[in-house]
Design a protein around this nucleic acid. Structure first.
Lengths: 187, 187
DNA sequence: TAGGAGTAGTCATATCACTGACTATGCGAC
DNA sequence: GTCGCATAGTCAGTGATATGACTACTCCTA
């Protein structure tokens, strides 16, 4: 019952085809939800069967035809019901954390390497988020945008993603440095 | 290939029965991995079939017999191989974020309520982590423990969990306050 | 003129994660 | 003396998520 609502939320922005939705999921929602195109197509079909979204065929001549989907009133009601049901908190669920948990009994070298790689990746993601945040708020500064801008939802989730990656980076760097100091690599 | 390694990592601490493991998962690994007992029993059975853990029967008179499991050399090798395979980064995957993403088109009241509840829950978790961190480092202060203590793996993952919940709390509070200011509740 | 990249979408299968309902036994509280 | 809780574990089933292999068309480039 989760991807379902993420798809509905994404379609609130406007009409999308399955293919376009996949792009949106890559750049916007990938932040807190990732799905491969196949999942999205399957979910769109289900949502349409249930009347929560409506699709219309668009004939194109220079490229394959496509079907654009919009959220119906029933879909909006479904989202409203969703916000009313208590959401259970989740945990982080990272393979990397499992590795660190076990690091005392294993060779730390590969774990250190992965932590360092992840720190770099996290830093890159922070920059992506920064660009996205700038794009979302346009010419307004953050404070004004959050007070007066429309559609602050995506901005807020983006902020959360940014902080998550920032913390990720800090932690990875700290953990890598610590493990390195404790078990100096040979050579 | 994920719960599998979390179970192996947990069993590095010592011998556990399925039942005890469930407790460990509740207090220690729940941080970054949660699983209900049924999953753990199933995974233990699989791991034993594959020779990655070994079980021994313990006859008890005052309560039901149990089977205690330990990681075998093959299990350690499996974990070592696991640390060597690149781990893919995950995203947050929270229902609550989906709700916030869609909040501009919905009644914000229930979302605000959920954000505020979550902030309280996150604050409680931070305290649990603090207690766990104190317990793990014993009499040592953090810096000394991280430099000289043994088994810093669980401490590091716990630190990550603590920061995650701290960020969660801050973000939930900020988001709730913002939404409240923008759409004053009737009454 | 062949090859690759981009657009648009489908099918089948596997694995993961979770839910709910169950069986036993012993101990302590009421 | 039975009710509930803690210990210890099993079975059956479902829904969610992920993987891989496909089709088909157009445009651009080498």
């Amino acid at each position: 019952m989760a991807l379902r609502h993420a798809v509905l939320a994404a379609l609130l922005d406007g009409e999308y085809s399955g293919y376009q939705l996949a792009k949106v999921f890559d750049v916007s929602l990938a932040n807190f939800w990732y799905a491969v195109p196949q999942q999205l197509y399957a979910e769109l079909a289900k949502l349409e069967r249930e009347g929560l979204i409506a699709g219309r065929q668009v004939i194109q001549h220079d490229r394959p035809n496509k079907r654009l989907f919009t959220v119906t009133d029933a879909g909006l009601a479904e989202l409203a019901a969703f916000t009313a049901t208590p959401s259970k908190p989740t945990s982080i669920r990272e393979d990397l954390l499992v590795m660190v948990q076990a690091v005392d009994r294993l060779d730390p070298a590969p774990v250190i390497a992965q932590l360092e790689e992840r720190a770099v990746a996290a830093a890159a993601k922070v920059e992506i988020f920064d660009r996205m945040l700038r794009r979302l708020r346009g010419e307004l500064d953050e404070e004004t945008f959050l007070r007066e801008g429309d559609r602050i939802g995506p901005y807020l989730t983006c902020l959360r993603g940014r902080r998550f990656e920032q913390e990720n980076r800090t932690w990875c760097e700290q953990a890598a440095a610590l493990l390195r100091a404790r078990a100096p690599l040979p050579g």
